[in-house]
Design a protein around this nucleic acid. Sequence first.
DNA 1: ATACTAAATAGGATTTACTACTATTTGTCA
DNA 2: TGACAAATAGTAGTAAATCCTATTTAGTAT
Lengths: 152, 152
Amino acid sequence: MDTVNQNSTFEEKLAGFEACCRKHGLKLTPQRIAIYKTLISTDSHPTADEVYQMVRTEISNISLDTVNRTLLTLTEIGAAFQVEGTGQPRRFDGGLEDHQHFLCIKCGKVIDFQHDALGDIHIPDEVQGQFKILRKTVYLEGFCSVCAEKEL
Amino acid sequence: MDTVNQNSTFEEKLAGFEACCRKHGLKLTPQRIAIYKTLISTDSHPTADEVYQMVRTEISNISLDTVNRTLLTLTEIGAAFQVEGTGQPRRFDGGLEDHQHFLCIKCGKVIDFQHDALGDIHIPDEVQGQFKILRKTVYLEGFCSVCAEKEL
DNA sequence: ATACTAAATAGGATTTACTACTATTTGTCA
DNA sequence: TGACAAATAGTAGTAAATCCTATTTAGTAT
């Protein structure tokens, strides 16, 4: 996993983010920085619109499209990620044989894979007690073989 | 895990589905059955619109809204589920400390939880080779404490 | 069989999330 | 400091999901 930085202060994160942008040849615009700051300042899981509302207090005329675009860029460079279970048209599954899902973040394709060992994951008691769990799975995200080639 | 039925024939699944509907006091409408049949007849992960197109060959004047509604009812009774990584507005996460997500399928709230043991999940080589994995996590779905009470 | 009632549906309108487009602005680097 | 590619604002457009209402229908009682 290659998230920008964990267990670091706000300033360290910011510095890490700026380095990450430069590494990917991305410009350090005030909008980009404001959006990143907003995102790491909350422990909720905001939608693009929610981020938009928050950032507007700082940059009043920022556009929603910029927020959307920027959030996607952040996920692409690993400075943020999308919460699984959200995004794009809903896809359904007949829930047949036990399997896990891999989502290609480029083309959106969902690929099943199966591995018995993943089937029985132990969920800690404090979590068990807190929620009524209907489904547990291991979930992978990345590039499928087709999209991985295009990335090079 | 309480999916309707795994490792069973088409007819068994259908019978199980009908029983499941009755159990939940749901009527067995032709639309509902057709949608369920369609869903378990494919190993892709269709969107509501894709299911709609397929079911239309059987019930030509079915409405998209019905398909949507029905697919959601199916997930509520455990006869199907939504593929994680899809659905509703995208939510973002600053990706700070390592954590897992629990999604309440009722209110849509995403709750973080943390358990070290879940951190390092072994992904089999045949999967590793097939994709470029950027993120792996254990993902839970169900009812949060608030919604679980309302369900009773 | 027949009639009744709550549940479900069709069809269309509306809302919401996201993306596309274009003119303008702004970081970055020579 | 000037040039240029990248990024942005603003707005228009598209796609997905939901809402609304009149009508139909499955399940049950008679």
